[in-house]
Amino acid sequence: MMPIFSKPGRAIGLTVAAAMLLGGCGPLISFGSNGPAADVYTLNYDGAFGPELKEGPLLYFDEPHVAEGLSGQKIAVRLGAHKRSTLANARWVTGLTTLVRDYLTRSLSDEAKTRAIGEGSLDVKVDCRLGMKVWSFDFVPGQKGEDDAVDVTIELSLIRLRDGHFIGQHTFVQTPSVKGPSDDDVMDAFNVAMRANSRDMAKWLSALKDQCAAPAG
């Protein structure tokens, strides 16, 4: 026999409980801020894709290590020697490490004519590992708009995997000025810096990559 009023009572109880649960979960549910949506930017290599080389040393481009504060999607701003901030209303399309790795994997395989692979290559036998450290990837506003610049500093290390031999290391720095007052101009400057760094890196890598295949000892 069904208990008298059990169903209506249960329904009311469930409704109240659901309302309380929803109310309680309110602080956990974020609907975003009321401000304008952020513009999303990427790093775009404007050169060709790397040639399909059959021979030559194969390089594994490691995921970059980044200085503190650069690992997310926010765009770093350097205000003075020690103060840091992030750019309002703009962000990277994905984490900076992924952007830098993808850019350099493509640009260096093109410009240094190198066989290079990035993420998802643990099952491939490679000759060298290219380690990366992003020391700065900052927008640096000046006193006036025409003094604005970006600072892109990336350190590369080349390690021969066969014997763990440390072939070489170099730090590449570019600080191009920002041509205008908008976020787009800042992003253009970042792309210019990456392009210039990439050219320098290609020269450095071309001179060293043959050591990847050299015998141990």
């Binding site: 975003g32 801020s33 009321n34 401000g35 701003v77 205000l79 901030s85 992030t86 750019l87 309002a88 209303n89 927008f139 506003p141 708009g145 007052p181 908008s182 976020d183 800042v186």
Partner: peptide, 14 residues
């Protein structure tokens, strides 16, 4: 956050 238009920092909302 640094606002490029006002060239100053503003508090993050929301």
């Amino acid at each position: 956050q640094y606002d490029l238009k006002t060239r100053s920092e503003k508090k993050e909302k929301g």
